[in-house]
Amino acid sequence: MDAKDILTETSEALVDLDQDKVLETINKGLEAGLKPMDIIEKGLLPGINTVGDEFEQDIKFLPEMMSAAMIFQEAMAILQPKIEEQGGADRKVGTVVLGAVKGDLHTIGKDIVKILLKTSGFTVHDLGMDVGTFSFIDKAEEVNADIIAMSALLTTTLVNQRDLIEALEGQGKRDRFKVMVGGGAVTQSWADEIQADAYSDTAFSAAKAAKRLVGRG
């Protein structure tokens, strides 16, 4: 089996959500001398992108997306140490603190964004739902985040997104973190009004916007 076949098998196994097969082909690839970054870029990422496309087309759904993300992370647990051993660059593109704002108990959309950010190479700290303004900021400082991402499904919780930006300004930290907003109640005009750095109306565009914000898009 040549390198191309191994990478194709890795990708297909990820689309099939077959964790054992993904890990087996990765080990086979490493034994065959493939570079870990090539396995990621040409095997795992095409697979996860296919899963993402199928999610957008209603062929796969949230549980399958979550399974694919978990398999991806298992694979990275093997590949990341190899990359470091070989002196390669960390695949990490940035750190995001994520949550649904105070008063909002809806989390499924946020959960999808989390998966897509993780598979895009971000480290994600998910604070869950009903998250207070200063909890976002404290966590972002603690983990030295690049981005704070907030979702709001209810119109009456939107104001908490504005509060966070106001709090960052009040603390003199507005330039330190990029702020992304999304969720059913959020619009581009609202994002403009509160001067958020990015707005996304879908989970996929959120992952792309996050990469743009850290200069990797």
Binding site: T156, T157, V159, N160
Partner: peptide, 16 residues
């Protein structure tokens, strides 16, 4: 109606 005196009532607030 989600507004009181022209402002959106915040979730769980007395205005809500």
């Amino acid at each position: 109606i989600l507004q009181m005196r022209g402002k959106d009532a915040r979730v769980r607030s007395p205005q809500e």
